[in-house]
Simulated assay, not measured.
Amino acid sequence: MPKLEVVAARTEPWALLRAAAEETVRGEPHLASQLNAVILSHNDLASALSFQIARKLGDSELGAMSVREICRDAFDADPRIVASAEADLQAVAERDPAIKSLLQPFLYFKGFQALQAHRVAHWLWGQGREALAFHFQSRISELFQVDIHPAARMGSGLFLDHGTGIVIGETAVVGDEVSMLHAVTLGGTGAERGDRHPKIGKGVLLGAGAKVLGNITVGDYAKVASGSVVLKDVPAGCTVAGVPARLVNCPTGATPARTMDHTLADIVYDFVI
């Protein structure tokens, strides 16, 4: 088990984040100003997260101070947003063997930052503030190359690895503990209206470049191999691969999103799902 995962299992993400910032300041004083502004001057994760989102999304059209006020309003109204951010940090700690500390996702990872900003946009959408929600979506897409419609419903404990090129449509639903890599699309199959996007179950692993299209369901703890095009429901606990996607094996493993195991079985079933 990676060292960071062991530590993360018994320590709150905010405490880990502060400790990592303090250690980095001691070793790399050139980053002291940034780390003090973004992390060390704050008393909790909500305050630091609102500052980080604001400094990223703020621009000449909607300044950083306004963005931060919006984030604070969202966090106060719905504490689940910050709780989900904590779970997302925990997910990165458990699933990404490349990270050295939680500073990396919080400061630098596009997938994590896009997801946290989306949560605020989704809150705005629920308040009927659609124009402002679309502004957030546009800025997220410009900055992070991650395009999530503000109406899309995203669970907690998510890991958007690399992030680049992820597209998630308006009526998509992503369950808790899902992992997805770059260039994943949860889209429609045409110009249909209404409920037209995929429903992704708990603990699903979506490989790089996977395309899941239409109002279909990917069952809990299923796995979609990299580069696959999925057009029909995927049974829970199964792996699919190919264009169009075919069943590779069932069951696929207990927790594919946690293990991040992208390997495939040697025997491929001879029918299309």
Rank of each mutant, 00 (worst) to 15 (best):
P2V: 13
P2G: 10
E5M: 14
E5S: 13
V6S: 12
A8G: 11
A15M: 15
L16K: 02
A20L: 05
A20S: 06
T24M: 13
G27V: 12
I39L: 07
I39T: 01
A46E: 07
A48P: 01
A48T: 07
L49D: 05
S50M: 11
A54L: 06
A54N: 05
L62C: 13
G63P: 12
M65P: 15
C71G: 03
A91I: 08
V92I: 11
S101H: 08
F106K: 08
Y108S: 12
F112S: 05
A114N: 03
Q116H: 06
A117M: 09
R129C: 12
E130H: 15
I140Y: 05
L143H: 06
R153W: 13
M154C: 09
F159D: 00
L160M: 10
H162K: 03
V167G: 00
V178C: 01
V178D: 00
V178M: 02
S179H: 01
A183D: 10
L186M: 06
E192W: 11
R193V: 15
G194D: 01
G201A: 08
G201H: 04
A208Y: 00
G209M: 03
G209K: 03
L213W: 02
T217H: 09
V224I: 07
G227P: 00
V234K: 01
C250W: 04
P251H: 10
G253L: 06
D261N: 09
D270A: 12
